[in-house]
């Protein structure tokens, strides 16, 4: 499978082409419901995580929350 490079929270990551945002988040062992995602400067709505396919050079910022307050 062909790979590509993206940047996530400042780090370069090599990932498989065609991967969706939700798969990428799950592969990091994070619960997508608890994550705010910004891709190339745009905040991605939660209901788009399943369909957004990452592409070469994307710059992702993920902010993950844990419970308690």
């Amino acid at each position: 499978m062909t790979t590509m490079k993206i940047t996530c929270n400042g780090e370069t990551k090599e990932i498989n082409q065609g991967i969706t945002l939700i798969s990428f988040i799950k592969d990091l062992d994070l619960n997508p419901d608890n994550v705010v995602a910004e891709c190339d400067g745009t905040i991605i709505k939660r209901d788009k995580y399943d369909t957004l396919v990452l592409t070469e050079g994307n710059v992702l910022e993920l902010i993950r929350f844990v419970g308690g307050g």
Binding site: N31, D33, N34, V35, V36, E38, I43, K45, R46, I63, R64, F65, V66, G67, G68, G69
Partner: peptide, 30 residues
Amino acid sequence: FDDPAMKAAALSSVLTNMPGIGYVGASGVA
């Protein structure tokens, strides 16, 4: 909030819809 999904939803909402306001959230206090 207590619920992490609400924490994420709130930040997402503010970054998208409320430019210019201040925002102070919390995560990891247990």
